[in-house]
Design a protein around this nucleic acid. Sequence first.
DNA 1: CGGGTTTCTGCGTTTTTGTGCGGGAATTTG
DNA 2: CAAATTCCCGCACAAAAACGCAGAAACCCG
Lengths: 249, 249
Amino acid sequence: MLKKERQAYILHQVNLHNKVLSSSLCLDINVSEDTIRRDLQELAEEGKVIKVHGGALSHSFSQVHFPSNGVYSLTQKKKIAQKAISLIQNGMFVLTSGGTTILEMARSLPPQLKATFISGAIPAILEYMHHPNIDVILIGDRISKNAKITVGTEAIAKIRQMRADMCFLGTNAIDLQHGITDNDWEVVQLKKAMIESAQKVVCLAIAEKINTFQPIQIAELGKIDILITELPPDDPILKPYADTGIKVL
Amino acid sequence: MLKKERQAYILHQVNLHNKVLSSSLCLDINVSEDTIRRDLQELAEEGKVIKVHGGALSHSFSQVHFPSNGVYSLTQKKKIAQKAISLIQNGMFVLTSGGTTILEMARSLPPQLKATFISGAIPAILEYMHHPNIDVILIGDRISKNAKITVGTEAIAKIRQMRADMCFLGTNAIDLQHGITDNDWEVVQLKKAMIESAQKVVCLAIAEKINTFQPIQIAELGKIDILITELPPDDPILKPYADTGIKVL
DNA sequence: CGGGTTTCTGCGTTTTTGTGCGGGAATTTG
DNA sequence: CAAATTCCCGCACAAAAACGCAGAAACCCG
């Protein structure tokens, strides 16, 4: 088994269960504990997991207990959220993925907006629920604790039978060659379905995600209608994307 | 169980209940009191909790007043929650409705319990999601903002195709003549479906709900297997229910 | 093709960390 | 004041990590 393959498997396990024991991993993959430990260490250095004595934890895990995340690019995300909200009109059916940028958008929705939001992302749902004029449709299925979103075939089937006006995707990585990419297989399946079910696809990405990529492809750039970052639309880094026909905000 | 994981659980409990006893924690997690004490000490050094003789307090608690129970029957609900939890075994599939009693149960689930919880109740789902060993299946559909639970035909259809070992119902009203009743038509439909899909039906009701009724019937008493209140099982008010064959805890 | 280098992996050995236990000191409670 | 908890300290033991090393595979390059 290849090293990358192994690390991808480990990452998948961590994302699925929020934690992982080195001992159980080395039984699973049938390699020595040292190898696992080295893998975890590498993943930890890349910020993919958090290494602890005896195994590793998912990043979201510790984020819960450090609610003081005011530092995490909040101002950029607010800016993105504002631009995204300007696209939403009364009466629309809006499909949203998970992620902190989407969450910020959910928090910033103006109270007089009347629309229907469809999502399986728990934190976002909580925000929608508190909004006075928004109807909320919850996508059900098994919950991925790490992504805090429902994943699985039922969720995908439900999304497939929707016809939304617009779909907002929190974006983990985007570049010219691979399009939008991610590292969680189940979330990727979900986002694929969301793209197919929406008339317009909007990607929200903070600038540091631009020109990066991850192992699994969600969609080619051609599928994207609008790209929103915190940068001004004429920033040179965004030029190549605009040139492919994507509307950049 | 990983050390960080344990500390996360402790922190969660402290933030939830504003206090925590080392003795109850070491029963919950099944480690020695020394370990708990060391954990609390570490958390205290990081400023996450305030350590006191016998346990720890949340930071917010020490600052302000006693917002505590009195009005909201919290202690009764905790008692009910404890009895309910004693019915859950590892590996079970458990269906739960909404309501504050169910929420209290969700908060009190012991961390080593491994089970699958199925629900459309958003507050309860949040608790299940934070639990280290519980798998969560979310029932999707339109969200009723006031009940904070998913309602509608899709939700009912999904529940119908489940086969749960046990179903816990928060109960708004119960009496001998009408069985269990409620006043929200959509929630009633949902609970009916849940009863049909579960092998055992457990009703959680605080004593003040006993011998009251509401406009819409959910089910006859005959459908109920177990009734849990905060009273001792031999309380005279419960006698008539026990006489109909319901197991009273 | 072949020799040198880098990368990856597993195996001992040593260090560090996490946990439980016993006994005595300190604190709470009645 | 006395009994019961709870806390603190040192120790022992097990599990995990760090470290150095060596063999094997992959890679590079003239």
